[in-house]
Structure formats: C-alpha cells, structure tokens
Amino acid sequence: MTDQSALFEYLLRLGDNTLVLGHRVSEWCGHAPVLEEDIALANSALDLIGQTQMWLGLAGEVEGAGRSADDLAMLRDVWDFRNLLLVEQPNGDFGQTLMRQCLFDAFHLELLTDLTRASDDRIAAIAAKALKEVTYHLDRSSETVIGLSDGTEESHRRMQAALDLLWPYVGEMFTPDAVDNAMHAAGIAPDLTALRTRFDTRIDAILAEATLTKPDSTYAQSGGKTGFRHSEHLGHMLTQMQWLQRAYPGATW
C-alpha cells in the first residue's frame, strides 16, 4: 500500500464516520422527544455533515481522480464505505442514540486532539476546526447519558441496555490495521493503544457518574473501517441518503 492510497483510505474513514453518523442523527429531525432536543440533534448532525465536506473534499483531492466530496458521499455503494460499525447502527430509542453519540464523541474528541498535531497541515487544520464542535458534542452527550442513566428505573434500564448493545462496536475504533499503521508511521494518525487508554479514562468516569455497569467483555465486532463487512443497516440507510442521486443520476441542486 502506498502512502497516498493509505492517506486516501484514512480520509475516507474520517469522512465516512461523520457522514454516516451525521445522517443517522438527522433522522431524528422532527421526531425528538422535545423541541430543544430536536434542535440539538439537528445542529449536531449539521456539524458532522460540515466536517464530512472537509474530510471527503480532501480525500477527493488526495485521490486525484476528480471526485468531489458530493461524488464520494452520494455515488459510492455500501462496500466502498469506510465508517466504523458503531456509527451505522440504527438510532433505536432516544437513549440509545445518545449512548452511541457519547461513545463516538469520546473517541472522536481524543482522535481529533491528536490529529491537530498531524504532520499534514491540511489534516491538522480540519481537526482543529472540528475539535471545537466535537468538544461541545461530548459535553452534551455525556451530560444526557448521565442524566438519563441516573434517572428513573425505566430510563436507567434503557441506558444500560443501550450500553450493552453498543459496547461490542467500541473495540473496532482502537484495533489498528495496515492503514492505521501506515498513517501512524507517517506522523498523521495517533497510536490507537494510547488513545484507548485516554478513551477508557473518559468513559469510565462518565459511566461511573451515570451509575452504569461497563460490560465485562472485550469482544469487538469488526469490518466497518476496512469495508470488509458492514452490518446490514448501512445499505438500508444509503437507500435513503442516496435516493435522489440513484433515481436521478447527476442531478444538481
């Protein structure tokens, strides 16, 4: 694998994570339990889609095949997506959505913090921009996870169930492969083992305050960021997200 193709793959991972999660979160628009939460979810989704434009824009530039961020987002099929399995999981109830968000935000914040020191200035600049938004995302998702978990018996039960359901998707974020290693060697991506330690510190503190029990398993689902095997949910999501370009190829705004 050349450095250039590893960089392209790595940028797709960054951009596909924010794209797929951004789309998932936007599915709440008009359906959230209260108006304020609806607005908060839509705003978080908007930040993530904005970050996607920057990551996939850069990916297209690095690829050099003339593909724009829109082309990459709307004209690839499911096997070409490089997002983590966690972010493509369905929204479930409001608590499950916020648990998914909190787990991703804690990872995202630590990742972006390291990427601000990347040897590639373009990546460092996007990371610095996104980090400000993601800091705010984690504030909100962690507060909400704590509030709901340490709430009523019913809300606690749902949050524990959400954590148990999503925990097997956490390991993939920290399992390095050839792309991660090449990017780490190039001074761009962080060492994922060190990142895991920081993630655990954060998440353990949040879960303790939330009165939740961290599942006693290190089993990790994999196949999202390599594109080897996505869960069945991503294809269904893309039929919605890419509907217009599939029905009317090449349509422009």
């Binding site: 908007l46 930040d47 889609i49 904005g50 970050q51 434009q53």
Partner: peptide, 8 residues
C-alpha cells in the same frame, strides 16, 4: 473562514 463547519 466559516463559523461552524456545517453552517448553511
């Protein structure tokens, strides 16, 4: 410079 990266 954009305020927020997704600001429409």
């Amino acid at each position: 410079t954009p305020t927020y990266s997704g600001c429409p």
